[in-house]
């Protein structure tokens, strides 16, 4: 891949302490984002996408335990950073857009106030300059009437507009990486398309890195350079988006894509047998093996080493070890 790595997650293991014991969620996750690169992460709910993203900014809930791994950002391990370094990263370098724009915007404050607080806090600016920056950001996010939006309470805006405000906020200043965790899940199809077009345009224009986390496979395919497929806390396949979607290698990726209804009306699969494992006693070896049609002895014992099956397209599956 061209360019230097901006973010490199290596062998990340994260669990949660609960009253039923420890749930072993992330099981060796790895992921790389280069400067200005658009990276997708797909996987069904509960596969560990949000846990991975929250680890990057170290905003995991208090019962989470990071057992092992490195999160190298611009050459430094986030997991070893001082609070001060971490704050700089959160204020100026990496921003996050969440699924639910309502919860990201305090309902008691006007959009303008929310934006000014964040901008002043991050950049030490005077009120006047901060306001200018905010209005410019709203305009860039294609909000009609930036002045009116600035003067509105969150509830006075539609869901699509609120998400645009979050995008505006996420892109303020000189960000290097935007993490968007299911940013369009609650929006209508036409608004989804608008919001994603806006995000991709801005990300390209500003040349920032972008991690787009979503269960909407088509939306990921259309908007990223490379994609990672996650299953039960593992990255099982990754590569250029075009290749992964046109030539899926892992039995799980294949099944998952077959389950998506097609606009052509061509028949789709009848589901995947079994269900996502419980994380208190996850399956040994490849975590997909209890649901896999091609299971071999090895699959129950070890996690398969990745194999590069075609240029830059990797899969972690014993089916590809035989050759």
């Amino acid at each position: 891949m061209n360019g230097e790595p901006l973010l490199e997650i290596k062998d990340l293991h994260v669990g949660y302490k609960t009253h039923m014991g420890i749930s072993h969620v992330l099981n060796g996750v790895h992921l790389t984002v280069h400067k200005g690169e658009r990276v997708g992460v797909i996987g069904e709910s509960g596969s560990g996408k949000t846990t991975t993203m929250k680890s990057i900014l170290r905003i995991l809930p208090s019962n989470a335990i990071i057992k092992k791994g490195e999160i190298v950002y611009n050459g430094k391990d986030v997991l070893k950073m001082s609070n001060e370094e971490l704050l700089t990263i959160r204020r100026k370098k990496i921003s996050m857009i969440f699924q639910d724009p309502t919860s990201a915007l305090n309902p008691l404050f006007k959009i303008g106030q929310i934006m000014l607080d964040i901008i002043k806090y991050s950049y030490n600016l005077e009120e006047k300059d901060a306001k200018e920056m905010a209005l410019k950001a709203l305009k860039e996010a294609a909000l009609p009437d930036p002045e009116r939006v600035f003067d509105s309470y969150p509830f006075q805006l539609s869901g699509g507009m609120r998400q645009r405000v979050c995008i505006a906020l996420a892109l303020i200043g000189e960000r290097e990486l935007i993490i968007a965790d299911e940013p369009t899940t609650n929006l209508d199809v036409t608004i989804k398309a608008q919001v994603l077009n806006l995000l991709t345009d801005l990300v390209k224009k500003k040349n920032v890195g972008w991690i787009f986390v979503s269960q909407a496979l088509g939306a990921v395919r259309e908007n990223v350079d490379r994609v990672y497929v996650m299953y039960a806390g593992n990255i099982i396949e990754w590569g250029p988006s075009e290749k992964v979607f046109s030539n899926p290698l892992h039995p799980y990726t294949q099944k998952l894509l077959e389950c998506v209804p097609k606009l052509t009306g061509k028949e789709f699969a009848k589901g995947i047998r079994g269900r996502i494992p419980n994380y208190f006693h996850p399956p040994s070896g490849c975590r997909f093996h209890p649901r896999c049609d091609y299971i071999m002895d090895n699959c129950k014992k070890n996690i398969p080493e990745p194999v590069e099956v075609e240029h830059e397209h990797f899969v972690s599956c014993y089916l590809y070890h035989r050759r």
Binding site: G160, V189, K262
Partner: peptide, 25 residues
Amino acid sequence: LLSSVPVLTKEEEELKPKGIKSVGE
């Protein structure tokens, strides 16, 4: 609406009307 549907294959892409973009709410 059709042009806004994200799809997985080239075949499906053909079905999406070109020349119309989602605007407004």
